[in-house]
Design a protein around this nucleic acid. Sequence first.
DNA 1: AAAGAACGCAACCGCGGTATT
DNA 2: GAATACCGCGGTTGCGTTCTT
Length: 310
Amino acid sequence: MGRAPCCDKATVKKGPWSPEEDAMLKNYIEEHGTGGNWIALPHKIGLKRCGKSCRLRWLNYLRPNIKHGDFTPEEDSIICSLYISIGSRWSIIAAQLPGRTDNDVKNYWNTKLKKRLLGRRKDRQSAAATAATSETSAENMNDAGERALSASAMERIQLCMQLQELQSPLGAAHHNPLVWPGTGCSRAATLSNNSFNSNSSTVTVAEQAGRSSSMNEHLMSAQQLDGGLGSPSSAENSNVISMEAGLEELLYGEGNGSGKAAGAVDGGVQQGGVDWWSYDDQGKSPVGCWDFAPETTNAVFQDYTSVYDI
DNA sequence: AAAGAACGCAACCGCGGTATT
DNA sequence: GAATACCGCGGTTGCGTTCTT
């Protein structure tokens, strides 16, 4: 039959960890490792904690080389672009940020980045001369969307709409394969139309969202990661650069007026002196994406492609 | 200075997938 | 193959801290 019970929920301690508990867990793992069994770990150490709690504490706080607070502009950009493309897959996003945990990234997004980005949209709408129509659109989108779309999907649509506004008055991002890949046309527009005129839709927003989750949401990220494996065309490069510039503008101000080093430079996007999307001299081959081991990139990408059958 | 509101973060909860018996 | 436990993840909550009035 099955295994032994996980832990006695009546006797395990909950709540904040004490320095003594931290020290016990840290010392034990540094000396013996996790042993591949988190459930058994607290018993071995003598901690009155659930194994899941120990695992969480170790991964999010005690593990070496953990970074806390002070996300850099480069990290902001990575989080935003990946969130737009793959949604709230925090573990995958965090994997692109050395030293960051999924919990950290999730908290940072929920408490800061989301407000910063989506707040800007509110500002734009309220300032617009055609406030009535734009607010109606947004409200309809919210009302309809909340019924059928996840909050995550709604946020991503809003972010994409912001990018469209920034990048081209004609909505170039609609045709940006990095934003809405695979369809050759505007997914954002499709979703929006269904949100606005959903009465007679044969394909519901929910279905679209479901398809988005299963098929398309990941693709920009996959292509970004794939950039480390192949050679994007110059058109793709310019799409990437254009999108990054848009994100920079969303994050740090209109017209690139912020103090942050934003904007595209030849052959890459330079941010605070760090190219996180850099290409070689000819701008053909990507190099040094995100400053972590290529094998890690490939592993993440391969995991992802295998899961989503890219 | 005090009270309430807002914020930020650590930790918990529940679920789905995987491994084990 | 079925039953059960383990693992990892995303969503949510609780609480301490900071800000605003």
